[in-house]
Structures are given as structure tokens and as C-alpha cells.
Design a protein around this nucleic acid. Sequence first.
RNA 1: GAUCUGUUAGCUCAGUUGGUUUAGAGCGCUUGCUUGACAGGCAAGAGGUCAACAGUUCAAAUCUGUUACAGAUCACCA
Length: 917
Amino acid sequence: MTIAPKYDPSIVEEKWYSFWLEKKYFHSEPDNRKAYTIVIPPPNVTGVLHMGHMLNNTIQDVLIRRARMLGFNACWVPGTDHASISTEAKVVAMLKERGIDKRDLSRDEYLKYAWEWKEKYGGIILTQLRKLGASCDWDRTAFTMDDIRYESVIRVFVDLYNKGLIYRGVRMVNWDPKALTAVSDEEVIYKESHGKLYYLRYYLDSEISDNSENSGIKKNEKGQYIVVATTRPETILGDTAVCVHPEDPRYTSLKGHSVVIPGVGRAVKIIMDEYVDREFGTGALKITPAHDINDYNLGLKYNLETIDIFNDNGTLNEHGLQYAGMDRFACRKQIVKDLEEAGLIEKIEDYTNNVGHSERTDAVIEPKLSAQWFMRMSDVAKKALEVVEDDTIQFHPAKFKNTYRHWLENIKDWCISRQLWWGHRIPAYYYEVDGKSEVVVAATRDEAYRLACEKHPGAVKNADDLHQDEDVLDTWFSSWLWPISLFDGIRNPDNEEIKYYYPTDTLITAPDIIFFWVARMIMAGEEYRHEVPFHHVYFTGIVRDKLGRKMSKSLGNSPDPIMLIDKYGADGVRMGMLLTAPAGNDIPFDESICEQGRNFSNKIWNALRLIKGWEVSEGTDQSNKSNKSDKSTQSDKSDKSDKSPQSDTLYNNNVSVQWMEMRMAQVLEEIEKDFNEFRLSEALMKSYKLVWDDFCSWYLEMIKPAYGTPIDRETYEATIGIFDRLMRILHPFMPFVTEEIWHALAERPEGASIMLQHMPHSVFYDQRMLDDFEMAREIIAGVRNLRNSKGLSPKEVLDLYIKGNCPAMFNGIICKLGNVGKIESVTDKVEGALSFMVGTTECFVPVSLNIDKEAELKKLNEELKYAEGFLATVMKKLSNEKFVNGAPEKVVAVERQKKADAESKIAALKAQIEALG
RNA sequence: GAUCUGUUAGCUCAGUUGGUUUAGAGCGCUUGCUUGACAGGCAAGAGGUCAACAGUUCAAAUCUGUUACAGAUCACCA
């Protein structure tokens, strides 16, 4: 049988993924096992797979595969969200390509195109996830706008409206002039931008006498004026007042006067309010109630006129005078030019401030007054905070609790309406009564009609006369129901599935949507299930490039994940991503870590090749295989005789198997702990080392038969069994290569899969034996080091004399791996031999070549210096009376042992130095 | 500006209620290997005054305070 020397993931991955799909091994139905549920953070339909998805979904797959192997009924539900704003942009672009203008379409016609687009491109990410090995229950694939989810959203809206938690009102909202919709506070990203601060001259409409020295009133040939600083000179068109601080001596004389808006000619009142910061600019503030939230509030307080100067798309409307029709930024340029020419600008300074941008379109947000729907947050926020504070929901890492708390304690009402067509249309219906608009909210038009008739009998003739709200709901208003609506828990709160799968177990997501999504899911869970939606939230980091920059399309610094998979295999990429990704830490991504993953697959592959290449001998003589190995300890070196186990292969193999079993149990214990604490990268690293270091580098070398000789069946079987379990441990991380190896290790029944096997559990292990092996390992390393540093050939057989404690159990293994001819215990040091120490044990290796005395002395003196330094730190403690009396007995005893060991080591080193010198 | 979190080897990170032979891992680096599984490999090795200072303690990478730097979240004054 020949196996290719290099592992080729491409064929293997294709093969096993189809196998899993065909057997429906990812599918889950409620049964009598405990459920372990994960709902995917729905990627939006406009996206393609990026590195963030790779990380996020790899983690989900690891957790779900592990849960499945631990005996849970694991269910990972995939899906996508409709992303109203982003999709709108895509669909409009598609229409444009076909020569269609959105404005020429009716709502229904437009939606037909939108669905067409969604059907065609909306599933790309989910398809790509299959290449990653994601074990999602694809039969459950959901979409935020499919029937169940759509209806759930509408019902929730109606319910919250009836509970008084949803209201409609005219407020200052964040307007996205590109998407032509309002967005929520969370969808505004403030970016530092370099602008100008313009100092404008507002002339007084009438002369006043103010002779005070520090008056803010200036004068030139055209008259008296005050200076107002602004970053947005175009908004003067909407000014309806100028405000100064009532206690600002510069402006006290202005009380009751008016000033003229430069270039506009309209006179506006001077108002006095403490809101103004006297230190900033000139201490005089122009008030534009229609375009600034603070100005708006002042407008309400002083009953100012509100002049909206913008159209929805950011151009100026009829209030923009000669600038009407211009874009707001073009207008700014022009108005500055005009004012300058008119001598109305005092000065212009460079200025840096933060400007809000739309998260989706990057357009500069325009504060705008408009009628929108809002959800009251204060009560739901309180509950959502509680369950995180008391750890009913645990965040990993926990530091995100702070961020979460801060947001919830300062929460504002959520603007949930969007002026778009693609989405869940708000179920509010309007009609007129005596010229006044009335509204009813109901899940269906018929129901709305019934309500309207009840409220105002005779006002509406038939259902078709009701006018439904044109707006749709924020996409997050559907995502926040995801853990519930996926199992139809809104429409059918008592159905089997919701009761079985909810609450879900772990949510894996990026920290940047902690408010958008995590917090709101918790609110929805409390509101509709009176139960949290998940018990753990695992926050991943952000994938960055080597230079620490975020990966983005515009920078072009993001590798194509599918290309990476083609190059390194899905297992390799999965491992690469996870190795450097402790929870919440950013990942400086470098392709080379995927290479490490690929190399690991290859290493496992080659271990298989080795084992499969062995000839197995039947019916071996078992004479030397008594159970003495179990009792083998340091003390039994005396019963070593001519029949020593040093050359007894069966004995050595038996010891090796025992050691490997215990080592595996020990590491499993640590891995289990890591998983409980969501330390996935640690768990992976430990698994990696268990396979590569302990299994490949040590265990396989220990039992490897000499060339051309067979291995005994018992050891062979044990090795297959160990390999089998190692693959199971690794399977959640590297599903493909482990499935392939697992099948190659033994004949499996038709349809068998590693993904359905039980995860090995830690069992009892003998720490003493593991410690003894550590010592043997150090002795082997010592011998190898001697060869290396002295230029001795690995082929030259050396003898080893040991003075001091040394467990004999591993002597045969030391001989094999160190190429040692014999090991003898001595009571005196051996003359003319090279030496090294392991702990307090001295090892001597006689060699034929001349010993470089000087080099030896140098090495010994360095060791001596270290040992003496060490002893000094120990003595410092022991000579401190307070330590000896104050520290626990155990700690003092350890220090005493350290002292004794150090002293014996120093003595041995000194003796060796003396012998040389 | 406010709050929070960090700072440990060249890089990325562990280090759990202070004490376990004067700090661990992976990668990288250095040296030597055509070793009958694997150069996508093997063996060995070097590398850190735990950001700085002060304090608490018998004992500090670990607890407290100050400073410096970095990051995150929120807010934002024209």
C-alpha cells in the first residue's frame, strides 16, 4: 500500500463535506438528548465571505462539532438578513445597468426586482461557508424576510405598539441623504475631519451704545456687528436666532436687539441662554433649529421658527434662496465665496471636528426633523442590563460588560423606521377624520379596518381606503428576534422546537455589534420568552493585516478566504485563524499561520503513513510483559539485571503506551478546562502539541520498530486506538483531515463518521509516571545536546553512567532515543567523561575523543554561577525569620527542598570542576 | 472630554485565590542534519532587569497608587 507523501486537502474536503451532507449529519430534530444550539449571526445578503466571517464561523463550528461529540443534540441554524439599506443600493445599481430608474417603478415592481436580486446573490456567503466545513443545519436556513420571520416582526411591532412601547413622533433624527432614510444613533460613525471654522459678521439692526472695553460689539464703516463662528456657513439660511450667554459681559448690551444674517438679510433675535460656551469661538452662537439637535432644543425653549433648508437628498430647497438646488457642500463653497466678497467674513481658521457618517453609505449625516417611529428603551434596557450584571449571560471576555453597561445606562429611544421599500413594512394605517390624520396599528389591513371602525365609526368606508405607512423597519428590528423567530417562537410560543432549542447556548459575534444586536436580542428574549436568548456571548476580535490595519475592500489588504482555502486547505485556514485568536483579541493575520495549519495536516498524514507502513507480527512471546511496569519506580533500579528491560522491546512498548495514555489524559483535562472557559486557541495549541510533540516526536519514536522488523500486534492496536482518539480531539478544529485519517485507521461500518463519535474524556493518570518520564526526556535531550555540541555522530553508540536518582522504567527508551548502549548506576563520578546534570542527578558519558577542558570548565562554571545565584535567593527567604514563621509550612518546606537541591548541585559541580582542574 | 481595558522574548499571546527550583508557549531566529513517515521535516540552542516609579506584604509579573504609552466604548461646543 502506498500513500502519497503529501496530504492533499482539496479532494478530501470535497469528499467528506458531500458525505456529511448526504447523510444529513448536520440536521437536528428535537429528541431526548440535551440540545446545544447556536444561531448564526446572519450575514447580510449583499456580502461575500471575508476574513471576519471565516473567524466567526470557524469558532461556531468548533463549538457545535464539539458539543455534538459530547453527546448533545447540536443545532447550528444558518441564515441571512435582508440589509435594507445595503440591498437597496445593490438593487438600484442592478436596475441602472438594465436602464431602469427606481423612481419609475411602483413599490411592488421594485420589490419584485429586489427579491430577484436576493435569490440570485443573497446566498453567496452561505455557499462559501460550506467550503470552510461549517456543519450548519442547512434544512433550517432562514431569512429575515421569509414568511415566518416577516410575520413575527409585524406581530412584535403591533404588540409593542399596543403595550405603549412604540410611538410615532417628529424628532431630530440622523438623516442619510444618500440612502434617503433616517438611521438610528448606532448607525452613525463619527470621524475626525479637517474643516474650517468661519467667523461671520452679523450686523446689528440698530445702533447701540456700548463703550465697555471688552465689548463683543465691533464696528466698521458699515456699522456695528458681532462675530459668530460656524463650521457650516450654509446653514445660516436656516438661522432663526443668535444666542449668547446671559452672563457674558461682552454681549449684555445686546439684550432685546436683533442682528442681520449675513448675505441673507433676515433679522433674527438675540437670545440669551446658559447653553452657550463662552470660551468657544466668539461666545456667540447661531441657532438653526432645523439642522442641529441642540439648536432644535433651544428653538423649542424660545419658541423660535424652524426653517428647513434642505431637500431629502442634501440639496438646498426653496429656502436656500439663490442657492436652491445646489448640493450642501457645493453651497458651502459658494456661500463662503459670496460672503467673502461682501466683506461679511471676519476670518477663517482651520478646524478639526468630528463629523457623523452613515455606517452603510458613508454619507455625511444630516440632522433632520422628521416624523419617525421610535421604541422606548428605558424599561427593556433595565432588564437587559440585569441579566448581564448577574452573569445569567456571561460575556467572554468579561471586559465587554463595561461597554454594555455604559450603553444601556445612557440609552436613548430607538428610531426604528426607515424610508425604504425593502424590508418589513410598518403595519400602521392612516385615515382622516375631520381633516385630521388618525392611525391604527394592526397585523393586517382587515384588522386595521376593524380597529378604525371601532375608533371612528363610519370614518372609513372600506379597508382599501386605509393608507399604510410607506416606511419599513430597521433591519435590526428583525434580527433582534432571530433566536426566537428561527424556531417560530413569536407566532407559536408553545411549539416543540422553541421549547427544545431555546435558550440557545452560545452567541459568537464581533464586539462592534454589541448594541445593534446583542443587547437588543437580550431585550427581545426578556420581552417575549421571559428568558435570556443565550447563556454565553463569545466576542471575537477583528481580523487585521500584518500592519495592524483593519481589513477592508478599499485598502485591498484582505485575502480572499476561498483562495486561502484552495491554497492551504480548510483545515489549515481554520487552524491558522484560531491559533492566534484568543477571545476578544484582534488577529494580526498573516498567511503564514495558515501554512502552519497546512503543515500540521501534513504531519498527521505522515504519522499515518508511518504506522500504515509497519508490518505487524502475530503471536509474539509475551514473557517479559509482566505488570511490573506499573510498579516500576525509582527504587526498583536495583532489580535490574542481565535481563534488564533496556533491550526488551515489548516492555518498552508497553511503557510507551502507558505513558502516552496518561499524557493524553493529562492534556485532555486541560483542554476540557480551556473549553469551559472559552479559551479556544489554548485548547487548540494543546491539542496541536499533544499530537505533534508527544505523539509524533516522542511516542512514535519510542515504539517505532527498527527498519525491516515488525511491531507487535498489541502495541500496534494500542497505537491505532490512541491515534483514533487524537483525531477525535482534533476533529472540531480540523474536521476534514481527521475524518480522512479516522477512516484510514480502521475498517469503519458504512456511513460511520468521526463527527458522530464520542469525544474522549480525561481519565485518571499517574502524575508520578509523567514526572519520571520528564526526567527521562531531559536525559535524552542531554545526551543529544552532548552529541550536538561536541560534534559526535548520532550513529556512535554512547554509554551512560548515572549518579543519583533516576527512574529505571524508561531506561530502554533512553537507550533507544539517545542511541545509548548501556545505562549503569554509579555512586562515584566517572573520570574522563563528559557530563551534564538533570536536576540533582549527574550523568556521565565517557567518550574516546579528547575533552576540551577549558570549554568544560567554562560550562561548569556558568552552571555553578547560576546555582549559587539561585541558592542565594532561597537563602534570602530562609534566613528571614518572618518568612520562616509567617509563611505556610508547605511553602517553607519547598524552600528547604530547594536549598538542599541547590546545595547538592553546587557540591557536584564543584567536584567536577576540581576533577578537571 | 468621560469611562473602561491593556503594556510579559524579535512577533502574537499564556501565566487561574500572591509562594511550585531566580518567568512559559507558538512563530521567527541560530547551529547541525539527503536520519527509510514527514525539508510542508528532524535534533539541539540562544533570547525577557514582566512599561516606569512608589507602596502593601515574610513573599509581587500577580494587590494598591502615580506617570507614560496603546487600544476600546461613549459623548461632543457652534
